[in-house]
Design a protein around this nucleic acid. Sequence first.
DNA 1: ATGTCCACTGGAAGTGGA
Length: 283
Amino acid sequence: MTSLKIATFNVNGIRARLPHLLRWLEREQPDIACLQELKAVSEGFPILDIRAAGYDAIWHGQRSWNGVAILTKGATPVEIRRALPGDPDDDHSRYVEAEVGDLIVGCLYLPNGNPQPGPKFDYKLRWFERLIAHGAELYASGRPVVLAGDYNVVPTDFDIYNPRSWLKDALLQPESRECYRRLLAQGWTDALRKLYPEERIYTFWDYFRQSWQRNAGLRIDHLLLNAEAAARLLAAGVDRWVRDQEKPSDHAPTWVTLDAETSAKTARKRAGTQARTAAPAPT
DNA sequence: ATGTCCACTGGAAGTGGA
């Protein structure tokens, strides 16, 4: 009867956002939280505050930029890897993966890729190719897998308030979208879109032009589930209240709940009856 | 082009990245 809440949150600076993070953990009590954009070296990660909040964690920091972490409550994250396979020369901290109970959790911060075209966009696409290659292995692992993070991709024009002023942005390029589509084609379920196929859902509102006040958002934080995890999907949503505070991150936490029972048959039955009513539409 | 925010350097305001 119990469920597992798994969230992804681009904090945009773990030190600047520590009060927000702790308030969110306290209020929403995710069992697993994937964080991105720590913008801090590993030594600067506030593990004592996070432990005091009741969480264990693994993390991979970097000076000024990037940085990812997986927080867990009531379980220990067992690190599987702290980089995406395929390029030993890639020194960005953008991926960490752990076993948490019977789950495998991948936490990713895909390169933004702007300005486009250019070397940063090339790097984005190369990184995406590595994610697609690794995604195929994860998908077929036989374990329930959640691949969560800031993908820096707006999958379709339905996932943005208005594409007009973003047409040249790396987040909307056909090449970026094609990579995302190819990843999904392995069988992954885009959890929020699956449960809310006709809702406008945003997870990011940039700091410019009063974007939050106008609800001028983008959906770029995604939780992808392989078949074993998707069979247990109960609900999904966006914690918009986090974006409405003073000095917020430009992203809001985005989450799913999975049936904690291992019986996929039970979970499938429950998902069929509860998914549509389990949470208010995150518009 | 612009808008805003975070971190770093250097010890103020400018730069890079998003």
